[in-house]
Amino acid sequence: MVTLSVVTPMFNERAAVDHFVARLRPVLDGLGVTYEVVAVDDGSSDGTVPRLLELRDGWDQLRVVKLRRNVGHQSALGAGLRAARGAYVVSIDADLQDPPEAIGEMLAKARDEDLDVVYGVRSDRSTDTPFKRKTAGVYYWLMRRLVGPWVSGQAGDFRLMSRPVVDTLNDLPEQQPVYRLVVPSLGFPSGEVTYVRAERVAGETKYPLGKMIKLSLDSVTSFSAAPLKIATWLGLVTFVICLGLVVSGLAAWAFGVVVPGWTSLYLAMLLLGAVQLICLGMLGEYVGRIYASTQSRPRYLVAFDTGEATGEVDVPLVTSGRA
């Protein structure tokens, strides 16, 4: 078995690929262990795949896994985890904001302290914009409240995991996993390695505001029924408010300061709206659970994997996240 797999999701990273390889390869060659690099192309359109294939000609440890279309960072990461063969697996982005030089320290820590997970934790995010730091802080604060205190406030997707952790992740029935929350929720023995977050080496961020909002929504809906419970409580609160308005409506009718017929319509609409919200909230509790358990569409399709024995062939690998 390969000792170490490095999984790198890539989407339109042509400008960063050469810089990434120039930093990563010397680090891995100097570890003295067998390794592979699994570069997962998430439907790039800027020449990322052709460049990776060129680099592979002079680097046998580089595998290129091309997905048929863009499926998002977390699903692309999941494809890489399923393809990885190492006893330990590191996930890292190609933008070099997370330093490849920390991989050796992570591997040594996992071995010396018998850990299954080693998180890369940002000790300094001064290279990020104030808006990015603020929104990230709000996101992790919310996740710690909803998911649990074990979620690190400064750990993203730069981490090392043992084979048991990766196998567990691959067996989970999650359709929209958020690995920065899933991994700590499993409870495997873990440690941390701190580093200073750097600026993106080239290209544009792959997490603009829209994708950050989507990640937040996926995080909340994957780990908490809070939105559904909020709907239920909103209905209950509205119902209580409606009771007060019922009294005021009856008083207005008693004093004759309303248009004939207005009171009955007013009260009916208020009560109906409150009851509908309560019922929708309760129904949502059940529908949400049924929906999560019955999704069976594949998260991604692999066009080819150069690590297959037959080379660059069309590999119709379908993964739905089911055990």
Rank of each mutant, 00 (worst) to 15 (best):
A76F: 14
A108M: 05
A155N: 01
D218S: 09
L181D: 06
E174Y: 15
V2Y: 11
T306R: 14
E54V: 13
R82M: 10
G156C: 02
D41V: 07
R56Q: 15
A102I: 07
L24S: 00
D60G: 09
L115M: 06
L301M: 13
G244S: 09
P149T: 10
L28V: 07
D218K: 12
I230E: 00
A15M: 12
K109Q: 11
T238W: 12
S185Q: 10
V247E: 07
A79I: 04
P100W: 08
K214T: 14
G187N: 00
A274E: 11
L96T: 12
R299E: 10
Y140D: 02
G58D: 08
D171G: 10
N70F: 04
R125Y: 09
G86L: 09
D171S: 05
V220K: 03
V147L: 05
P100Y: 06
I213D: 03
G32S: 01
R200Y: 02
V196F: 02
A84G: 11
R63F: 06
M269W: 14
R299W: 12
Y300Q: 10
K109V: 03
G86R: 13
R82I: 13
L52V: 05
A87F: 04
E101Y: 04
A155F: 02
L181K: 04
T127V: 08
E192T: 02
V147H: 08
A155D: 00
I230T: 10
A274P: 04
G311P: 13
S320L: 03
G249I: 05
L55K: 13
L228Y: 13
S296R: 12
L265Y: 13
V287D: 06
L67I: 12
V117Q: 05
T194S: 15
P298V: 05
I241D: 03
V2K: 12
V49P: 03
V275Y: 07
R125K: 14
V71K: 11
S190V: 00
V27E: 10
R51D: 00
Y286G: 03
T8R: 01
G244T: 13
V240A: 15
L160D: 10
V2L: 12
D128V: 00
A323L: 14
G235C: 06
V40D: 01
F158H: 07
S190F: 05
K206T: 11
K214S: 05
D128F: 08
Q74N: 12
K206F: 01
V165R: 02
V7R: 09
T3A: 10
R111H: 07
G32I: 04
R51P: 02
F20I: 05
S75T: 09
L55R: 15
R145V: 04
